[in-house]
C-alpha cells in the first residue's frame, strides 16, 4: 500500500463557503442572452446592411421570390430542430428528398396518375424515416453514423432509379410551385410559415412537445419519468422522412424535373439553419422561432452574396464558417446562462 491511495491528511479543514442565492436575473437580461435574440439581431443587421448595398433588398417581394430555394430546406430544418432537441441528429433528409423525388419521377414515367405518384413519394418518405427510426430506436445505433449510412444508401438508390438522367415532363399544374402566389407570397413560403406556427405550437404547448425537451435534456430521466422515449423518437424520424419527401416534391415542382443529385450537399444547409437558430447541438434546448428567424437570416445572407456577385462555390466558405461560428456562439451563450 502506498500513500497515494489514502487521502492526504494535510488538506485544510473544510471551510464552509456560504453562498448567497444569486438574485434572479432581470427579465430583460434573460431575454437578451437567448440565442434566438442573437439570431434576430443578426437578421436585422443583415437586412439593413443588405438594403444599403442594394436597393433590391428594400423590396419585400424580391426577398420572398429569391427565398424559395432555401425555404425548401428550411421546412425540413423545422423538423430537424425537433430531432436535434431530442438529442439525436438526422443527416439524411437531403438524400431522402432525392430518393422520394426520384421515386415520384419514376412512378410518373411508369404511367401512374399524378396523385398516385405523389402518394408513392410521401409513402417513401414515411418508410425511409421509419427505417432510420428503427435503426436508432430498436437497434440502438447512434443516429450520427446511422444517418450517414442511410444518406449514402438513399442517395445511391436514387442514382440506381434515375441513373444520370433527369426525369421531367410533369403536367403543368404541378410545375412551378414557386411561381404560385398567395398575395405576394409564394406558396412554399406560405407552407413554411404555416409549418413554423404549427410546429412552434406543438413544441411549445403540447405535452409531446415538452417531452421532446425532456428527452434531450436527460434521456435517462425522461425514461424514469415514464416518457415513451423510443416512440417519440421514432415519430420524429418518421416526421423527418415525411417532410423531406414533401420538400422533395416542392423541388421537383420548382425545377420541373428530378435528378439523383437533387438537393445534394443540402445536409449542410439544413444543419446550418438549425444551428444558426440557436438550437443546442447536445439537445434539450432550442426553438422553432430560432429556426424560423435563422431561415430568413440565411436567405438574406445568401441572396446578398448572390447580388454581390460572389460565386456560388465561394459562398460555401461563408456557409461553413457560419456553421462553426454559430455552434460556438450558441454553446457559449448556453454555458453562460447555465451558471
Amino acid at each position: 500500500m502506498n500513500s497515494i491511495d489514502k487521502p492526504t491528511p494535510s488538506t485544510t479543514t473544510p471551510t464552509i463557503v456560504v453562498r448567497e442565492a444569486a438574485a434572479p436575473r432581470p427579465r430583460w437580461q434573460v431575454l437578451l442572452i437567448r440565442p434566438e435574440t442573437v439570431t434576430l439581431v443578426l437578421l436585422v443587421v443583415a437586412t439593413i446592411v443588405a438594403s444599403r448595398l442594394s436597393p433590391f433588398f428594400a423590396d419585400l417581394g424580391f426577398i420572398l421570390e429569391s427565398s424559395t430555394y432555401y425555404i425548401e430546406f428550411a421546412i425540413v430544418a423545422l423538423v430537424l430542430t425537433l430531432v436535434i432537441i431530442s438529442g439525436e441528429i438526422d443527416l439524411s433528409p437531403a438524400a431522402q428528398m432525392a430518393l422520394s423525388a426520384c421515386l415520384f419521377g419514376t412512378a410518373f414515367k411508369a404511367g401512374l396518375p399524378m396523385p398516385v405518384a405523389i402518394g408513392v413519394s410521401l409513402l417513401a418518405g414515411l418508410v425511409m424515416g421509419a427505417f432510420n427510426g428503427f435503426l436508432v430506436t430498436v437497434l440502438r445505433l447512434p443516429s450520427i453514423i446511422v444517418t450517414i449510412g442511410t444518406l449514402i444508401l438513399f442517395r445511391g438508390l436514387a442514382q440506381v432509379l434515375a441513373g444520370d438522367k433527369s426525369i421531367g415532363g410533369f403536367p403543368s399544374w404541378f410545375v412551378g410551385i414557386d411561381y404560385r402566389m398567395v398575395g405576394i407570397v409564394p406558396v412554399p413560403v406560405v407552407v413554411f410559415v404555416a409549418a413554423s406556427v404549427l410546429l412552434g405550437l406543438f413544441l411549445g404547448i403540447t405535452i409531446y412537445g415538452r417531452q421532446i425537451y425532456q428527452i434531450g435534456t436527460s434521456e435517462i430521466a425522461a425514461i424514469h419519468a415514464g416518457i415513451r422515449v423510443r416512440r417519440i423518437k421514432m415519430g420524429l424520424f418518421i416526421a423527418s422522412g415525411l417532410v423531406s419527401s414533401i420538400a422533395g416534391l416542392m423541388v421537383a415542382s420548382r425545377l420541373g424535373s428530378v435528378r439523383y443529385d437533387l438537393a445534394s450537399g443540402a445536409e449542410l444547409t439544413m444543419v446550418l439553419i438549425v444551428m444558426l437558430g440557436g438550437t443546442y447541438i447536445f439537445g434539450g434546448r432550442g426553438s422553432i422561432l430560432g429556426t424560423f428567424l435563422a431561415a430568413w437570416l440565411l436567405v438574406i445572407i445568401a441572396t446578398g452574396m448572390t447580388v454581390a456577385n460572389i460565386a456560388i462555390n465561394a459562398q460555401l466558405t461563408v456557409m461553413g464558417l457560419l456553421l462553426i461560428v454559430s455552434i460556438i456562439m450558441t454553446n457559449a451563450i448556453y454555458a453562460r446562462s447555465q451558471r
Binding site: 443527416l91 450537399g265 445536409e267 449542410l268 444543419v271 460555401l316 466558405t317 461553413g320 456553421l323 455552434i327
Partner: peptide
C-alpha cells in the same frame, strides 16, 4: 465541425 469545414475548405 467537420461538416462545416467540409463546406469551408471546399469553398
Amino acid at each position: 465541425v467537420t461538416l462545416g469545414t467540409l463546406s469551408l475548405y471546399r469553398g
